[in-house]
Amino acid sequence: MSKTMNLTLLVWRQKDAKSEGGFRPYKASGISDDMSFLEMLDIVNEGLIKAGDEPIAFDHDCREGICGMCSMVINGRPHGPKDRTTACQLHMRSFKDGDEIVIEPWRAAAFPVQRDLVVDRGAFDRIIAAGGFISAPTGTAPDANLILVPKEAADAAMDAAACIGCGACVAACPNGSAMLFVAAKLAHLGMLPQGQPERYSRVVRMVEVMDEEGFGGCTNIGECAAVCPKEISMDFIAQMNRDLL
């Protein structure tokens, strides 16, 4: 059945955006391997509060890998060691007794730290606001089956649309580039007939804001796709470049 383990955490603590931050060590004892990584942090935090210390602030909500809220770099890898797995879905059975675990926030100029592991990803929303949509005001739509979408196109669009907007791609990219996120949204909308009218202007508007927000450029390194919990493919980046040309 379930084993228990003792771990040492090395966690980035930072009071607020203005303050200096630093790493602090914590002990996590009696951790069961059935626990999720965040449940392990919950237990550490309970302990901290009781000890009169301040708990580690981290973002999370759905805890089932779909909202994209959880965001931490675990041992140098966004969302931790397991492929296709968000931090909230990571379970302690991926670690072993005595491990030291380094936990850091997403690090990117466009994602300023707000506290400890909590960062501000508003830049993503502003990129979407710039053009990441199909203009279809409420009530103006024709019957759904008047628009035929080949199954292949629908499935491909769905693969791109699976992006949860977590920002791990930016966190992993040595250039702090948001290409994978932007490319995924462009591919989702660009592969559907409904998305054609705005297809090319959309790329221009979104890329413009992406640059303004201070994300880096892409040098086709591929770390982003490697850590993406939803397996968004780098091919979408090529597709985006082609659309921009």
């Binding site: 790493f23 770099v73 140098g76 690090r107 040595p174 250039n175 702090g176 994300f215 880096g216 040098t219």
Partner: peptide
Amino acid sequence: NAAARPVPYRQ
């Protein structure tokens, strides 16, 4: 690109 990652990772 350098400006996009002002604080480096520890690991």
